[in-house]
Nucleic acid binder design. Structure first.
Length: 288
DNA sequence: CGTGGCCCCTGATTGC
DNA sequence: TGCAATCAGGGGCCAC
């Protein structure tokens, strides 16, 4: 369950170990891993063979590597359980290995996309030719994330406060703000003392600002220690787990005492997922 | 366009 | 013991 800080760690790993290398060949071992590549697995591999991978980029939880001179980029999303591993070529094959990239150099390592649940995937997509970072066109509707220096606080806060939907759903809306997942949404709401179903258009300016600041502080703290990790499903580009879960205040803490008021944290079903919150600190005001 | 519900997938865990 | 239900959840898609 990689959140934005984990994806950023992966981006840095790609930048360090993969960018600048030239692809020799690509093997797609599970077609679903490239389902977003409309032309199919063979075309995916053909478009990458012989190409040099550019500097690693990220927007929200999407990652991409420009393919210089082609007007395209290699786009990736880790989904729920995706991993990008740089492994020695002779390392044993992972159970859920989906795509394998071999390189033309003699470094002795290869790039592997491993993904148990196959919610993630890779694709070669057309990119904005005028953009030196070659952002895939399909990401045009994805908002910047709150750690991005070009994130527009004022515009986000105004848009948030126009939504009638629950504030948590708004936080997970990629067209408003990207990179906030279920875990950090719950953490940001806990820090802001807001109930997840609070209609976004009932937030005061101060509450909305506090929520954004809280999302930022949660992400910053996670990034500082290499991301949240709960189990072996999340591993960074070199196979090293992050470690932040011990500092979570709400997520996954059902029945444990709230770190502010000691009231047991509650778990509620929400959108086929879970929301964790303190029933005392995070109350839903009476509808007005 | 905003909203809300559903679906994709595999494996671990829980309950009967 | 075995089988079914539940849970994990990012995000695209669709009907309204």
């Amino acid at each position: 369950m990689p959140e934005l800080p984990e994806v950023e760690v992966v981006r840095r790993g790609l930048e360090r170990w993969v960018s600048g290398r030239t692809v020799r060949s690509v093997a797609v071992l599970h077609p679903r891993a490239v389902r977003r590549h409309v032309a199919g697995s063979e075309d995916f591999a053909a478009q990458l063979a012989g190409r040099t991978l550019g500097p690693a980029q990220r927007r929200g939880k999407y990652l991409w590597l420009p393919l210089p001179g082609t007007g395209t980029s290699l786009l990736g999303h880790l989904g729920m359980s995706g991993q990008l591993l740089v492994q020695p070529e002779e390392a044993p094959t992972e159970t859920h290995l989906r795509v394998r990239f071999s390189f033309a150099d003699s470094d002795g390592t290869e790039l592997r996309f491993v993904d148990q649940r196959t919610f993630g995937g890779l694709a070669v997509e057309d990119a904005d030719p005028s953009d030196p970072e070659a952002a895939p066109l399909s990401l045009a509707h994805i908002a910047r994330d709150p750690m991005d220096p070009r994130f527009d606080d004022t515009a986000f806060l105004a848009a948030l406060r126009r939504r009638s939907t629950g504030v948590k759903r708004a936080l997970l809306d990629q067209t408003l703000i990207s990179g906030v997942g279920n875990i950090y949404a719950d953490e940001a709401l806990w820090r802001s003392k807001l109930h997840y179903e609070r209609p976004a258009d009932t937030l005061s300016r101060a509450q909305a600002s506090l929520l954004l600041a809280s999302a930022r502080s949660v992400m910053s703290a996670a990034l500082a220690v290499g991301g949240t990790s709960f189990d072996s499903l999340y591993v960074n580009v070199n196979g090293e787990s992050g470690y932040f879960s011990r500092t979570l205040d709400a997520y996954g803490r059902e029945g444990e005492p709230c770190n502010r008021c000691a009231t047991p944290i509650r778990r509620a079903p929400w959108m086929n997922r879970s929301s964790y919150f303190c029933p005392r600190c995070q109350r839903l005001p009476r509808a007005r």
